[in-house]
């Protein structure tokens, strides 16, 4: 079997039966598998995360889980202020990003952008923005505006702008171009073409994307407090660094419930719209 370069050309005899898969594909699979395993061995060694480490670490993790229970139920009332701040940050950031993304996404769609330069530049800037993690933006804004919710809001705006503008630009590029032609042919200028031709066509998607980004922003704003950018994350970090694990667990439960409720509502609205 080893001698046959490929099963199509080789002749099969009872002593030389065809494999279940084409020989070439088999080699390829083995090769890919070997590479995946080798890279894993290297990376797990580099990050001290081999299976042995895992085995040794398990008791610590279990101990931690044990300490998280029981949650400190009484602490719940004290978290309300920070929780609402978290959601408020997401609301403000989503609103601002939702407004800003309209002109930006128009500039980033090939069929509406006034020229190639604006299209390419806007698109590239948005691509770059999307590669920067939200928490990193928060670190930078905390460096500029100081600790507080404002820095977090700024980070969320920039972060969600990249996502929203991309999604919306893709929608705009896929709209029916005929009505735009008709409006242009009746003497409409660019703004009128946008308001009468583009907007009605993208409205449902726009609402849906905005809600989706709101969900993302709620999740993101939960952890912005880790770097001092406001919200409930600050409480979580503080209670863990003071070894108040009962409080930490309470916060985790509250976060969980809040995320589930918000995603449920947002999902229902999105279903309704589309």
């Amino acid at each position: 079997m080893k001698g046959t370069p490929s099963p199509q050309q080789g002749t099969f005899t009872p002593n030389n039966p065809p494999g279940l898969r084409a020989q070439q594909a088999k080699w390829k699979l083995t090769f890919v598998f070997a590479v995946v395993v080798l890279v894993y061995m290297f990376t797990s060694w580099q990050t001290n995360s081999s299976l042995i480490n895992l085995w040794n670490g398990l008791p610590d993790v279990w101990r931690m889980v044990g300490e998280l229970f029981p949650p400190n139920w009484g602490y719940a009332t004290e978290t309300w202020g920070r929780l609402s701040e978290t959601i408020q940050m997401a609301i403000i950031a989503t609103t601002v990003a939702g407004i800003l993304c309209i002109p930006i996404s128009l500039m980033a769609s090939s069929n509406i952008a006034p020229n190639k330069w604006i299209y390419n530049i806007t698109k590239q800037i948005m691509n770059i923005l999307r590669t920067i993690p939200d928490l990193l933006l928060a670190v930078i804004f905390v460096g500029i505006f100081g600790i507080g919710a404002f820095s977090g809001i700024m980070a969320l705006i920039i972060f969600s702008l990249g996502i929203l503008a991309k999604l919306l630009a893709e929608t705009i590029e896929a709209i029916d171009k005929n009505p735009l032609e008709a409006i242009r042919a009746s003497g409409g200028n660019t703004l009128q073409v946008i308001v009468y031709g583009v907007m009605p066509q993208i409205l449902p998607q726009y609402t849906s994307f905005t809600l989706y980004v709101f969900e993302i922003n709620v999740r993101a704003s939960l952890v912005l407090g880790f770097v001092g950018a406001g919200g409930i994350g600050q409480l979580l970090q503080r209670s863990i660094s003071f070894f108040q694990y009962g409080r930490a667990m309470m916060i985790i439960i509250i976060i969980f419930v809040a995320v589930v409720i918000i995603e449920y509502i947002s999902g229902k609205i999105r279903e309704e719209i589309m």
Binding site: G57, L135, R219, A220, V223, F226, G233, I252, I255, V259
Partner: peptide
């Protein structure tokens, strides 16, 4: 349930544990 938590929150707990 797992998806509800951002990874960095899990990391905070694992850092505390190990």
């Amino acid at each position: 349930a797992i998806r509800a938590f951002p990874e960095i929150m899990l990391a905070l707990i694992f850092v505390a544990a190990i």
